[in-house]
Design a protein around this nucleic acid. Structure first.
Lengths: 133, 133
DNA sequence: CAGAATCCCTTGTGATACTG
DNA sequence: CAGTATCACAAGGGATTCTG
């Protein structure tokens, strides 16, 4: 990379330049938000998350939880029982994040139709071959 | 895919299940937000965007603009002059989106330090080998 | 000026199998 | 139950070159 040996990644540089990107890098993963939502009501177990989130693999659940934990968005509590029981819980910071994500949800719901139409119109105009997909 | 021949992609299924993801899929790209921000002040030319957004390649600028245009977030206006002049402008919908993204920026700025510390603490605890990166 | 086309590498994600 | 390990693959993104 042209950034050379500054010891700072391109990712980090972008994040510094744009705080929004910093959040997005944290939440843009395919599963992060769904985990945040699923855990919003209180402590939740690994398997409950796995069952509650349609289509997630065990691997991705683990990886995403680790990242969230690393950023201080979830806490991981191991109950030393047999069989093991691990509970994940949102931190206050994550709850705040969830609140602001609600804003985005609002925007999405208000404009979902509008955007779908824009997309259809664009495709009809620029990509006619997709019309019978 | 287990969805089979329903004619609907996995992406779309997730989006329907979770409106937030729908927005994120639209904005999570590496450059989308920076373009939205750069264009927020008014019409802006291709080259101005290219110069204003540190590190973006011509290819990604084009691709991202096309996606934004497709979703009805930016308009593309070609002035038939020589040399050609193309201006991009945010739609009202995109301006609304920008406003809600501001919320996220606020969250990021308020918690940037907190998260950096959480990350450092986590790495120190779980990944000591990264401490001299 | 504002792209389009091509090549290539990195990253994210899914599938599967194994374990304390 | 709650993971970890490994493989394999597709998409995202960067660098470069060409053009109306």
């Amino acid at each position: 990379m042209s950034q050379g040996n500054t010891g700072v990644t391109v990712q980090a540089v972008n994040a510094y330049a744009c705080p929004v990107r910093e959040v997005l890098d944290r939440v843009a993963g395919k599963w992060s938000v769904q985990i945040l939502v699923a855990a919003a009501q209180g402590p939740i177990r690994f398997t409950e998350l796995e069952r509650g989130i349609e289509g997630i693999s065990r691997r991705m659940l683990t990886l995403t939880l680790r990242n969230l934990e690393r950023d201080g968005l979830v806490t991981r509590t191991v109950h030393p029982t047999v069989p093991p029981k691990v509970e994940y819980e949102l931190t206050p910071v994550a709850h705040e994040l969830n609140d602001t994500l609600q804003q985005l949800t609002g925007w999405a719901e208000r404009n979902r139709v509008h955007i779908a139409e824009a997309r259809a119109a664009y495709d009809a105009e620029h990509r006619p071959e997709l019309l019978d997909a």
